[in-house]
């Protein structure tokens, strides 16, 4: 990895340094370091059980890392936040790191619109004078709520759910639920968005739409995206930067082109025999872009 050309350049958004997570004797993540850049899509890939979701759980405060430093450089507030020291709920609230879940976690008995309003809780809480103005029915709060609904409408339009805004979210089809979860995360106005297998269970058409959504978020919202994904063709297509982990350790890091030709990655995915030919469909996935 001495060759500089594959290194990703950009403005750092999220720096992971020497992250280690142990559960009892099990080392889920060992000394992992990488940097996700602002206005880029960074994909975290690796075989099943490599520790990808654990990285997300550390970043979003669900686990306290055993060791390591997780720094978020907030581009708007011009501040640095050390995520490993923050309470879970303060990470989205203060540092602006939002996430989605591998198993979709919507508020099932609430409507689509309500889901998006809950995401704007902290702002609305202040605007409602911690409920006092709200209870009194002051104009200030009503204006704030109208704005919140506007933001919700904006994202509903983006993910094509405007017509279903008053549906119970548990009644939505699977693909809609995935997109709603992303819309909900965006309603917290994050600086970094962590997506845990957003394309899992989607059909090719939906996956394509998902790609467009990611591009839109990157280009228009100018935030960084962190992505865990299994769909290799999707990863290679959307990402600016790919980090490969296996058994909790980083085995490759760089541009998609670099990573897909990295022997270490091929070994991790296909086993030890290096000279074996790639199965045709995998090879296609890896090279789909170049074709």
């Amino acid at each position: 990895m001495s060759d500089q050309s594959h290194e990703v350049s950009g403005v750092p958004l999220l720096e992971v340094e020497h992250l280690t997570m142990r559960f009892g004797g099990l080392v889920a993540i060992g000394d992992l370091s990488f940097t996700a850049m602002r206005e880029q899509i960074t994909a975290l890939i690796g075989p099943n059980g490599a520790g990808k979701t654990t990285v997300f759980n550390c970043l979003t405060g669900f686990y306290k890392p055993t060791e390591g430093r997780l720094t978020l450089h907030h581009p708007v507030k011009q501040e640095q936040y050390y995520l490993e020291q923050m309470d879970g709920f303060r990470i989205p609230q203060v540092a602006g790191v939002a996430r989605t879940f591998q198993n979709i976690r919507l508020f099932g008995n609430m409507t689509v619109l309500e889901n998006l309003l809950v995401a704007q809780h902290n702002k609305l809480m202040v605007e409602s004078g911690f409920s006092v103005f709200g209870l009194l029915g002051l104009k200030k709060y009503r204006k704030a709520e109208a704005e919140a609904i506007e933001l919700a409408k904006y994202w509903l339009d983006r993910v094509g759910l405007y017509d279903k805004a008053d549906w119970n979210s548990s009644n939505l089809p699977y693909g809609d639920q995935r997109r709603l979860e992303i819309a909900r995360a965006m309603c917290t106005r994050p600086q970094a968005l962590c997506l845990d297998e957003p394309a899992a269970g989607l059909n090719p058409k939906e996956t394509l739409e998902m790609n467009e959504l990611f591009h839109f978020i990157k280009e228009e919202e100018k935030i960084g995206l962190l992505l865990i994904e299994h769909d290799m063709s999707m990863v290679m297509e959307v990402s600016d930067h790919v980090v490969v982990i296996d058994y909790g350790r980083k085995i490759s890091d760089g541009t998609p082109d670099h990573v897909k030709n990295d022997p270490a990655v091929i070994r991790a995915y296909l086993g030890e025999e290096e000279d074996e030919e790639l199965p045709p469909e995998v090879a296609q996935d890896f090279e789909g872009e170049n074709a």
Partner: peptide, 25 residues
């Protein structure tokens, strides 16, 4: 119908999701 009330219901539905949205449970 206020944010706090919606947050209560959201907590009832899924506390983990609430934390990921910055709500102090």
């Amino acid at each position: 119908k206020l944010p706090v009330g919606r947050a209560w219901e959201a907590l009832r539905e899924d506390e983990t999701a609430c934390r990921s949205l910055g709500i102090n449970p």
